[in-house]
């Protein structure tokens, strides 16, 4: 009986959290009109959310591309199909690894930072202070960060994929002696703008939306103490990672299903 009551309470609490999350989302959207009038706020956030994530994205992209080059070459050469290395590297990056790994890195680098920042602002009463200054903290602080996350993710994923293709080229063509012309021309012929690139972009927009939303909600909803903030930061990374991987499966099934 006790167990059942506990389960019920937990269920209600998570439903309430879900409700608060959606209300927060609506509230953030309502701040977009204000943001258009003050693009400076957005630019500052694009810098801290997007530009500052670029280093880790570039380096990871390079290494993931290089590993793909190695593994791909090993498998393809067994069938004598080394020329297809370019296609393999590019397709796996654009369709899957680009959006997914970028989103995972983004959750770790930018998402956790957003949660900690908002959570600390809450714990130190800065958000309350803004409210009492008649400034809506959600519109003023959260909306620019949300839009910045949404815009940054596809761009970061594109950078990741592009660098990854170069990484694959370095290993495949530079090290293992795949024909350079074949690497590029096969890629050009087989990668489809609609099928591959658009779908990859759609994925990363969805991931950007979800990751930033989770990060901001966790920060805004956290218990305003140092422990609360640290838990919220952990939750951001865990929930984002799970959401990314589940959504990736669903989106892939929908896009490449038939």
């Amino acid at each position: 009986m006790e167990r059942l009551a506990q389960l019920g309470r937990a269920g209600i609490a998570s439903l309430q959290r879900l409700g608060r999350g959606h209300l927060l989302l609506l509230h953030m959207f309502s701040g977009i009109t204000d943001l258009i009038r003050r693009p400076k706020l957005l630019i500052a956030q694009l810098y801290s959310v997007g530009v500052l994530s670029m280093l880790i994205i570039t380096i990871s992209g390079l290494f993931v591309g290089m590993v793909l080059g190695l593994q791909g070459f090993y498998i393809l050469s067994q069938f004598g199909a080394e020329e297809a290395l370019g296609v393999m590297v590019a397709a796996s990056l654009v369709r899957e690894l680009g959006p997914v790994v970028t989103a995972l890195l983004f959750a770790g680098r930018a998402g956790s930072a957003l949660t900690a920042e908002i959570g600390l602002m809450k714990a130190t009463e800065q958000l309350s202070g803004l409210e009492m200054m008649a400034v809506d903290p959600i519109k003023r602080i959260l909306t620019p960060r949300f839009i910045a996350g949404l815009l940054s993710m596809p761009l970061l994923a594109a950078i990741f994929s592009a660098i990854g293709v170069i990484g694959g080229h370095l290993v495949g063509v530079g090290l293992l002696g795949v024909d350079e012309g074949a690497y590029w021309s096969q890629m050009q012929a087989k990668i489809d703008l609609h099928e591959d690139i658009y779908n990859g972009v759609i994925k990363s927009i969805v991931f950007g939306f979800v990751c930033t939303w989770i990060a901001l909600f966790q920060g805004h909803d956290c218990v305003p103490t140092s422990e609360g903030v640290s838990r919220a930061t952990t939750r951001t990374v865990v929930h984002s990672a799970l959401a990314i991987l589940c959504l990736d499966f669903v989106l892939t099934a929908l896009m490449f299903g038939e």
Binding site: S128, G129, L130, M132, M133, A134, V135
Partner: peptide, 29 residues
């Protein structure tokens, strides 16, 4: 609230801008 001022127990200054900008903040908003 624009007609109310409130001094928080903790101060509640915005930590990413300096004292001048903190005081100027309501004016700029």
């Amino acid at each position: 609230r624009m007609r109310m001022g409130m001094l928080f127990q903790s101060g509640a200054l915005l930590t990413d801008i300096n004292v001048f900008e903190n005081v100027a903040y309501p004016l700029r908003e």
